[in-house]
Design a protein around this nucleic acid. Sequence first.
DNA 1: TCTATAAAAGATAAATTTATCTTTTATAGA
DNA 2: TCTATAAAAGATAAATTTATCTTTTATAGA
Lengths: 146, 146
Amino acid sequence: MISKACKYAIRATIFVASKKEEGIKLNIKDIAREVDAPEAFTAKILQVLNKTRIITSLKGPYGGFYIEDYQLQQPVINIVNALDGMSVFQECGLGLRQCSATHPCPMHDQYKIARDALQDAFQNTTIGQLAEQVNEGGSYINNLGY
Amino acid sequence: MISKACKYAIRATIFVASKKEEGIKLNIKDIAREVDAPEAFTAKILQVLNKTRIITSLKGPYGGFYIEDYQLQQPVINIVNALDGMSVFQECGLGLRQCSATHPCPMHDQYKIARDALQDAFQNTTIGQLAEQVNEGGSYINNLGY
DNA sequence: TCTATAAAAGATAAATTTATCTTTTATAGA
DNA sequence: TCTATAAAAGATAAATTTATCTTTTATAGA
């Protein structure tokens, strides 16, 4: 569906976003621990997230990762795009290079419904909304404490 | 979404099914060529499809792959299950090991809609229906001829 | 300016998936 | 029974994704 790296990325972004009100910057170690992801791999992913302006980073002492107001408004699909690209939302369900309404694979119509639903899910949800979910409680970004 | 192997598997199965009326057995080479998949890899996949009773094979001269009547009635999800397992239809969108309505990730509800739509697509379509699509024309299982 | 700190960048390594090649087994027909 | 044919099984290899480790760069505060 989407890569493991991308899932880590979404969880990390939600965590950073959920701490916005506290006005602090978060470091790699704390983010990796919270979202239950390998630290060095998380570092690589955070690099991408910063480069694509999903979140913002600052080097040096008192540095770390944080999220800005305009970034909270971004749809989650921007994270998917940054890590995996948009191909999941466009690819043929049977792997054909050419597959469209006019030259369809035999599953085209059925598959398109699911693929579009997936795109809608990521397109119509913002990072801020997910952070809010977490802050309101009852929704989680890890399995620690199970 | 689903693995490359699984997509090859679905295409191969549809091809074998679409030739049922001709009453012939198809060999690996012909199947691989038709669905535009690597031959040796296709052989491995066909092995799995035979072992899981998606299609049937016979060794030796005049041998090859064919599909039986009851196999045409199987939903496409059986192929997905044989190659990838059912986890795509159950996994959390953010990769949490524990994620359910009672302990949800923040995207749970939105993601579940898409995941269920995907499952429905594969569950409610039979191999026979797809073969019919191809035989009626206007729907394809390769990109040859583009 | 110097020091400490934290991310960025770069080089590898491990794991998984995709792909290939060789040997063995089953079977039809001569 | 022997031969030819086609899939099954098994051993590797290549490619991709996931993961780790080391070195470099940026920056705040002393």
